[in-house]
Nucleic acid binder design. Structure first.
Lengths: 349, 349
DNA sequence: AACTGTTTCGAAATCGTTTGCGTGTTAAAA
DNA sequence: TTTTAACACGCAAACGATTTCGAAACAGTT
């Protein structure tokens, strides 16, 4: 095991001062060519690389960004991370991942752990439990300490931070339109509890479209899933809820699910109940991922362009970090990433 | 925006020395109770938290571990990350993610970026391109600089590092056995090129089992997919390869796919060709994930317990990091995580 | 020989924290 | 009154790097 090279080590070895070594390696014109050559050769030989921690301490910047998400085993979030990582890497930043597991407490802990100098800023999507509690003091404190935050997808208002979202209402309208265009007359929605704001917005879009089209709207068409307390048997409970929903509403002929999992699970239940897809009942999901693509029949979905959201979030954060160093404070902005419907088999006429 | 509190700031404000503040906050018996109380109150008021960067520089440890994986949009890897994150967090470590995108160059860059003090050790799964090049100098240099590495799943021999793997050969034998027990007589395998060692091992297991059972073995039963250069249309190429494979081998009645994607794609192609699953042809996959679970019909798979692998990898790494600080150097060990077959519909008789 | 200017380098501060050791004060013991 | 010990605190070095400023050394000019 080689001893790791440091400026001091090179300096004593070459019998010059530390500052000379530092300057020589950065091609300062203060240093003569001969010593430069000497130092550089030695540095290369010992594979010298400046210590990032020391640089961070000196420069007061870490070039790390913290990403806190509710869950990593989730296709949408991983695409966002991929986007963040891409942009961050291209701009010299590393990505540190924190998982909240939808828990308020873990979200606070993660924020705390990273906020003491480890990172320059956060990108996050709020945990369901935090949304249901409505307690956002940890975000405010973090921002108040000069650490910028960018929120994506599950964002909250009234906080001084940039946001990256999709136009959930319009996207949902289009999703329902897609079902209607394919011939559906009684369209149901499987969504989340209201405190998950994206779920609520998607429900609103659904309702607005039916309203505008003067179509049948009934409360029984709306199924709200509560899975904020992530347990072991969430999937079974989900299936049971949907089973009851379909049994109670045999007249439905189109389903808008606000995420992939709800979508494919609903398809499974429908199949078990003897429906033919898409002949008897059609489906559309939200958040394009592997599940939709490889479902049978393949599930039409609204693509959120997670990677694009991640890139944009990273861009906004890095911009704000750099701005802050120059004393600027930008107004917060909400960037809307467009959505696109990917037509597959479940909405074939 | 509050000024962030530091020892120095508290010291000048309270008109004591920096060391007094530091000691007071750690309840040193050198400091009187009255000043302790004073300092602590002030620290709490200003929400003082020691600066991690300074601590890292002083202690020569970052409490960060770097995880470099080929791809994050991949269920298996995310489960491993979840496991790593869980164990790491419980032991005071943060997780920094680097993505190689299966590229040798990006793997090297990631290693370099993080090796200069940012992390205390690596957990990684080797990129396909690196495996095909056979160039492992970057791993050796990293370890030689005193930064420990733990490899999982896609590991390589001859490197001084711990490994976390599954017993691919035995697991594959069991997988084939599962098909045979369900009545298959002509079992094919869809695997990777040989340089992906897990692919090769799984092929070996397949061959050994057929050998032992004295069953028919033909080269045409073996399909090797080359997807090391991740492009846009890999999935289409995959589908085309499988299509040709099935067309050339209409007598196959059982397929062992070495991963989820190959499995569900093969099922799709088979369905398009008019096979009924599992009546005409049965399937088993490897690496349990969302795809298998929600496929139609649901795909029987060999579960690799990714989360357990991640936890174990983190455990081995942290153990080695701590050992190194005490001057110990453990022998490298290879930990084998058990596998389990999850029986679903594609292997029903 | 004295002055000016350039070249080349080193000393020291700084980032925030920890910690061993030295020192001044006070109170108790002789 | 003197000695001693305990107590409470500050100084300074250390981690590894950057950077400002000052200072030698030498060349060239008058």
């Amino acid at each position: 095991m080689k001893p790791k090279a440091s400026l001091k080590m090179i300096a004593t070895e070459l019998d010059v001062s530390v500052s000379t070594v530092s300057k020589a390696l950065k091609d300062s014109k203060e240093i003569s060519d001969s010593t430069k050559k000497k130092v550089k050769a030695f540095a290369k030989l010992y594979n010298y690389k400046p210590n990032n921690i020391a640089l961070s301490l000196k420069s007061q910047q870490t070039n790390n960004i913290g990403v806190i998400i509710p869950e990593i085993v989730h296709h949408f979030f991983t695409t966002v991370i991929a986007g963040i990582e891409k942009f961050a890497n291209e701009h010299g930043y590393n990505v540190i991942i924190g998982l909240s597991n939808e828990s308020f407490k873990k979200e606070v802990i993660n924020l705390d752990m990273l906020a003491n100098g480890t990172i320059d800023g956060f990108i996050l999507s709020v945990a369901k439990q935090t949304l249901s509690y409505g307690d956002y003091h940890h975000f405010e404190e973090t921002i108040d300490q000069g650490i910028p935050i960018v929120m994506f997808d599950r964002v909250i208002d009234g906080i001084h931070c940039d946001r990256v979202v999709v136009d959930d209402i319009t996207a949902s309208k289009n999703a329902v339109k897609c079902l209607v265009d394919a011939g559906c007359e009684k369209v149901g929605i499987i969504t989340t509890e209201d405190f998950v704001n994206v779920g609520k917005k998607r429900l609103t879009g659904y309702q607005q479209y039916l309203e505008e089209m003067d179509m049948e709207q009934e409360d029984r068409f709306i199924l709200k899933i509560n899975d904020s307390e992530a347990g072991q048997n969430v999937e079974q409970k989900l299936e049971a809820s949907i089973y009851k929903y379909f049994s109670d509403n045999p007249d439905l002929d189109g389903i808008f699910a606000v995420n992939e999992l709800y979508g494919v699970t609903a398809m499974k239940v429908a199949r078990d109940l003897g429906y033919a897809i898409p002949r008897d009942i059609k489906f559309i999901g939200f958040t394009d991922g592997v599940l939709s693509k490889h479902a049978y029949p393949s599930l039409t979905t609204v693509s959120q362009h997670g990677e694009k959201m991640g890139e944009k979030a990273a861009e906004l954060l890095i911009r704000r970090i750099k701005g802050q160093r120059e004393g600027k404070d930008f107004d917060t902005q909400e960037h809307v990433v467009d959505t696109k419907i990917i037509h597959r088999e479940t909405t074939k006429e």
